[in-house]
Amino acid sequence: MEMEVLNLTAVGPAGPAFAAQVGAEAGTNAFSCYQCGKCSAGCPLSYAMDYQPRQIMRLVQLGLKDEALKSSTIWLCASCATCTTRCPREVQIAAVMDTLRAMARREGYPYKERSVAAFHRAFLNGVASGGRAYELGMILGYKLSTFEMFKDIDLGLTWLRQGKLKLLPERIKGSASVRDIFEKVRKLEQEEVARQREGRPAAHEGMEGHS
């Protein structure tokens, strides 16, 4: 029987720089993970993921950037932080998932879980335009971008009848200042991406703020 040989000690194409960058952005030390698997045993979403959280940590350590950023794991992570809470090495795994999602989006990786990404986009569009979440608009925006037109119609109608969904968004007086936050962040992110493409050193916030 022929077996595929996997060299698990070799470092992937992105090299150790990838783990260093992920760690710096997430405010944690990605190299600390020693693969005990406690994160994955406790993760309520792990049953649905293509890579276990533990495996994502290993992909990061090995510099296998494409594998990590194309995984379903980074989108299915519900940010409950069971992993971070239980990690004996104090690796902030939930923060690593955030970093990987943000990285996948800004570097234009295809989303393994398109519907999850579409939800986040629809949610934030509402916040950016009125300053507050607008559930009904978010649901409609989500449906338009995913073509899941008839999903959750029952619950939606029940909630409309119970008065749980507002027909019109709440627009705050300072909605322009909230829009401005989104604009500034977008600009800073574009500058950051350009800097990285040109190989200039990243100007992230530093690790000392996280613990």
Partner: peptide, 14 residues
């Protein structure tokens, strides 16, 4: 304003 909830931290740290 909205805190951004999960969608914001899944999108951009800042």
């Amino acid at each position: 304003n909205c805190c951004g909830a999960t969608s914001a931290h899944a999108t951009n740290h800042l």
